[in-house]
Design a protein around this nucleic acid. Structure first.
Length: 499
RNA sequence: GCCCCCAUCGUCUAGUGGCCUAGGACGCCGGGUUCUCAUCCCGGUAACACGGGUUCGAACCCCGUUGGGGGUGCCA
């Protein structure tokens, strides 16, 4: 049987560096075994999935060199590879389970479920569905469905015993069935949940090895049960340790840049990123620390994966990146620079902004350098206009960060609207508000037009610079963290509700 | 709370019972080369979480404790 692995990202935000990490191991394992590596888009969350995010995932994964053999864009024999296009399939398999008595319609409202959860937490009991709708008489079920009452399909789970499955890196894992919830398989909007879609697709797409993050270990029993119910051969499970922040928590954008696009924009080379990621939880058998993707594939041995969660250390990544840059002939470096940002296309966007401000050609670097750099140098005090205090500024920056990270269009109008909205909500003149952001984006209140600059910097770099600004304020003792942050979050939600 | 996973320098890791007075890399510190800086070279700092076993012998095997992480959603 040919080895087939997959990466299955959800298009709900910026393409995550952790996705690249998991993709790399899936890729290396598939290629080492002369198999195929598949990209599948898991867009079953209709609320949060966006086409922009999907496109960004394609671009980012391609950029880091994770060439997939089959995928939504390139097609393949077992498509479609976008779950929103496979609705009929999930519906059928969902019905099969209901017919078999392995799943049942559930009419419980969100309110009831919340109350239930609340109560269970108070009682310190295991949190989970109480089976309220599991025993509904079939005529009542038929009647309520016919009446168009919203419902989900839930999976029946044994109430005793334990699920035993094998993880290639950990050997046997045992989880009591009592710990496994009656998982929703089909949501009330007709979309499947991850659990159903992932099992159905992995089977239909003949995935032989599921290599994913260890956050999935606790829901693996649900998957194992589904394979059993369908009478399918489950794939081999291989759970990789999660990338961590310096404080060891799961890698998150608040504590570390996580968008692949940020790393691209900041001038990291794909080869260096691949190399560095290949060192996360892994080492080559011969101990080499510099290696190409081909080297990794050739010598790849998944059983060498180590299980301690690796801290993603940007400083070490930087070291590898530097080594790659220095090893390059200048002509190649020039090519990289052109591919990165120093090309006609970029300059033709930048120049219209700079041109009115040029007196000599030699002014051009001075006027535009902030658009090409990663970390800006400025004094934290520069962020704080005379009449404001630090915390006030931090809150404005945080609000902008929250408003700007919402996926969707990224153009001058969108950006402008965000700042107009902040100004309006806070009853501030735009003129008072913007200097903060000029400094955060350009390091100075004297710069090219702000909104256009932000569009050119790209969402990921903009969010990164806002984070830098917050970090700098933090260093001066302006702390928007913990309780203060929680409190502000509520404030923010009520301030910016609706509109 | 309950369930699961994990545990070697600050960080990434090598190490699968004797080769370990634990090796490499990043970082940090000191020195050298260089018109400056960076590079480069040399040196240094620093770890087997703890307690019990098993064994002639444990970083490596077993148990417990502690610590960290994840899960506990009509998110993935």
């Amino acid at each position: 049987m040919t080895v087939r692995t997959r990466i299955a990202p959800s298009p709900t935000g910026a393409p995550h560096i952790g996705t690249a990490y998991i993709a790399l191991f899936n890729y290396a394992f598939a290629k080492k075994n002369k198999g195929q590596f598949i990209l599948r888009i898991e867009d079953t969350d209709q609320q949060r999935s966006t086409p922009e995010s999907e496109q960004a995932i394609f671009d980012a994964l391609r950029w880091v060199g994770m060439a997939w053999d089959e995928g939504p864009d390139s097609g393949g024999p077992m498509g479609p590879y976008r779950q929103s296009e496979r609705m009929e399939t999930y519906r059928q398999y969902g019905r099969e389970l209901v017919d078999k008595g392995a799943a049942y319609p559930c009419f419980c409202t969100a309110e009831r479920l919340n109350e239930l959860r609340q109560k269970q937490m108070e009682d310190k009991a295991t949190v989970g569905y109480d089976g309220h709708c599991a025993g509904l008489p079939s005529d009542e079920v038929a009647r309520r469905i016919a009446a168009g009452e919203p419902h989900v399909i839930r999976m029946k789970v044994p109430s005793s015993g334990e699920c035993i499955f094998k993880d290639r890196l950990r050997d046997e894992i045992r989880i009591p069935w009592a710990q496994v919830d009656h998982q929703v398989l089909l949501k009330s909007d007709g979309f499947p949940t991850y659990h159903l879609a992932n099992v159905v697709d992995d089977h239909l797409m003949q995935i032989t090895h599921v290599i994913r993050g260890e956050e999935w270990i606790s829901s693996t029993p649900k998957h194992v049960l589904l394979y059993q119910l369908f009478g399918w051969q489950p794939p081999e499970f291989i759970h990789l340790p999660l990338l961590r922040n310096p404080d060891k928590s799961k890698l998150s954008k608040r504590k570390n840049p996580t968008s692949i696009l940020y790393y691209q924009r900041a001038g990291f080379l794909p080869a260096a990123i691949r190399n560095y990621l290949g060192l996360m939880a892994y080492s080559l058998p011969d101990g080499r620390e510099f290696f190409s993707l081909e080297d990794l594939v050739e010598t790849f041995d998944i059983d060498r994966v180590s299980l301690g969660g690796p801290v993603f250390d940007v400083q070490k990544l930087q070291h590898f990146n530097a080594e790659y840059i220095r090893a390059m002939p200048p002509a190649d470096l020039l090519k990289e620079l052109k591919a990165w940002a120093l090309n006609d296309e970029v300059w033709l966007k930048v120049l219209p902004l700079a041109q009115p401000r040029l007196e000599q050609l030699s002014d051009v670097m001075d006027k535009t350098s902030f658009l090409f750099t990663d970390r800006l140098r400025y004094e934290a005090a520069a962020l704080i206009p005379g009449e404001m205090d630090g915390l006030e500024v931090a809150k404005l920056i945080k609000a902008a960060q929250w408003l700007l990270e919402v996926p969707g269009a990224w153009d001058t109008d969108t950006v402008r609207q965000v700042f107009e909205r902040i100004a309006e909500t806070k009853a501030l003149k735009l003129k008072k508000l913007l200097p903060i952001f000029f400094v955060a984006m350009a390091g100075s209140t004297v710069a090219l037009p702000l909104f256009d600059s932000m569009v050119l910097l790209g969402r990921d770099m903009v969010l990164r610079r806002l984070q830098y600004a917050l970090d700098m304020l933090d260093e001066t003792g302006v702390s928007l963290k913990g309780k203060t942050l929680k409190k502000f979050e509520k404030e923010f939600q009520s301030d910016y509700a609706g509109s």
